[in-house]
Simulated assay, not measured.
Amino acid sequence: MSSTPLASVLFVCIHNAGRSQMAAGFLSHLAGGRVEVRSAGSVPADQVNPAAVEAMRELGIDISEQKPKVLTTEAVQASDYVITMGCGDACPIFPGKKYLDWALEDPAGKGVESVRPIRDEIKTRIEALIAEIDAEAAK
């Protein structure tokens, strides 16, 4: 297997504390290094949502060491896929990128019981994204 990633994916949400961190955790875990993964927020929080950390830990994925990062133009330019999750107009648009907007409930302020369905929806979307990336690479 080649050590060059098949694609680069940037997940963006407002605070980079819940949805985008869970998505990045799933993609890193499930793609096994085949995809370069980034996440960022238009207004990053101080820390990753503890309920998101716990929900992911339940599935054996540790995102506790992640830190919310600010969205930069460079991160968008360096990514093949830019997946937004409620960042509104704060996401820069560049030609040649594949943009997806995933309408997902914001887990901010919710307990782990309420975060689990959001986590599970993200996992389903990540599995479909990996299949799409694999199909593109096989062309």
Rank of each mutant, 00 (worst) to 15 (best):
A78C: 01
T73P: 02
E65W: 11
C87E: 11
E105N: 12
V115C: 08
R119N: 13
A90G: 15
T73H: 15
D80L: 02
A40D: 03
D120R: 11
P68V: 07
Q77N: 14
L59T: 14
A78W: 02
I130Y: 05
I126W: 01
V53T: 09
I118V: 15
I130M: 03
D106L: 10
F94P: 07
V70R: 15
A45R: 01
G41Q: 02
A52Y: 00
G88E: 09
L129N: 07
G33H: 04
R38V: 02
E121G: 00
D62K: 04
E36M: 14
D89C: 05
E127T: 13
Y99I: 08
I126K: 03
K98H: 15
K97T: 03
V115Q: 00
K69W: 03
G96V: 10
A51K: 06
A90F: 01
K67E: 14
A128W: 07
S79R: 07
L100Y: 09
V115D: 04
K97F: 06
E127G: 05
R125S: 11
R57H: 13
T124I: 05
A108E: 08
G32K: 12
R116M: 13
G41N: 00
E54I: 07
A31P: 00
I118Q: 06
I122M: 03
M56P: 08
Q77M: 13
Q77W: 15
P92C: 11
E113G: 05
Q66R: 13
D46H: 15
A31W: 02
T73V: 15
D106G: 10
D62T: 01
G33W: 02
Q77Y: 12
L104I: 13
K98T: 05
P117G: 03
A75L: 09
G88F: 10
S79L: 04
P92H: 09
I122P: 00
E121L: 10
V43F: 14
K110Y: 12
A40S: 09
R38Q: 11
A40Q: 01
E74V: 03
V76S: 13
E74S: 15
W102I: 08
L129K: 13
E121H: 04
Y81L: 00
I118E: 02
E127Q: 12
E58R: 07
R119A: 03
G86V: 03
D101V: 01
P50C: 05
I126D: 00
V115I: 11
V48M: 04
G32F: 09
R125P: 08
I63E: 02
I130A: 03
N49V: 03
M85W: 09
V43L: 10
F94C: 00
E65V: 08
M85T: 02
S114V: 01
L129R: 08
R116E: 12
K67V: 15
S64F: 10
